[in-house]
């Protein structure tokens, strides 16, 4: 398995969950990988992966991160914008500070990373933005999160159109992936356990997704196999959004 041999990758939000699964898979596929997060380097991160403590919403942090990419790798071939935050509120409940936090990471961070990284993708590159199915259909009580993911879809298409053919840019829209973020969303249900069972019954795949499922698609999109794929937002949700939300079998 050497799909990403000779490639260099920057993955934001590599502490845990989807980001960590992507980091581990990219390493297994032969890429040199740098990742980042707001805290210190996690103890369980494999030694060969470079870590930079970074707040992607902070311009000087992002500039320092990309400077380090150039210093370590010389150039960049893969950027995965995975770092994201979720706030479980309607807009009426949302404060200005919530806006700054969420849009800072999910929207401004993606914009700044792309702005810095496109010029250092001197041999061409693949940008993969982690969007969400909630960019197209709203998850209740996640107003700003949903809107920030629609931003990601719009930016993805723009980058593909403006910076092709050298740069390919696609988004992955995960459905329910078993991470801390999904647990937080279920926690606000009246009965989290029955909410989980109901959600499960709505998945033709018969299960929720795992971070490694997303890493599989990220790897394909990062590789030369995906040479004709650009400007798309690919949904990976175990079939959930292909079925109507009104499921009489569950009544």
């Amino acid at each position: 398995m050497n799909m990403l041999r000779h490639k260099t990758a920057l993955v934001t939000g590599g502490r845990q969950g989807i980001g960590r699964a992507i980091v581990d898979r990219f390493v297994a596929e032969g890429a040199r990988v740098m990742t980042c997060g707001r805290g210190p380097r996690p103890d369980d991160l494999v030694a060969e992966v470079l870590w930079e403590t970074t707040d992607v919403a902070d311009k000087s942090d992002v500039d320092a991160l990309t400077d380090r990419v150039v210093a370590e790798f010389g150039e960049l071939s893969i950027l995965v914008n995975n770092a994201g935050v979720q706030i479980e509120k309607t807009i009426v409940e949302t404060t200005d500070a919530d806006w700054d936090l969420l849009m800072g990471v999910n929207a401004k961070g993606v914009f700044m990373l792309c702005r810095d990284c496109i010029p250092i993708m001197v041999k061409g590159g693949s940008i993969i933005n982690i969007g969400s199915i909630s960019a197209s259909t709203a998850d209740p009580g996640l107003a700003l999160y949903n809107a920030s993911k629609a931003f990601v879809q719009g930016l993805t298409r723009s980058i593909a159109v403006d910076h092709g053919p050298a740069i390919r840019c696609n988004a992955i829209s995960p459905g329910w992936i078993m991470t801390g973020m999904a647990d937080a969303a279920f926690a606000v249900a009246n009965d989290p356990d029955s909410a989980k069972l109901d959600a499960l019954a709505r998945h033709p795949a018969g299960r929720f997704g795992e971070p490694t499922d997303i890493a599989s698609l990220a790897t394909w999109l990062a590789s030369d196999e995906a040479g004709f794929a650009t400007g798309q937002c690919y949904t990976l949700d175990g079939g959930m959004t292909s079925a109507s939300p009104l499921n009489p079998g569950l009544f």
């Binding site: 698609l217 790897t219 690919y234 990976l236 292909s242």
Partner: peptide, 10 residues
């Protein structure tokens, strides 16, 4: 590799 991909138009 695509074990979670279903119901989609690629």
């Amino acid at each position: 590799e695509a074990r979670y991909a279903s119901g989609q138009l690629w």
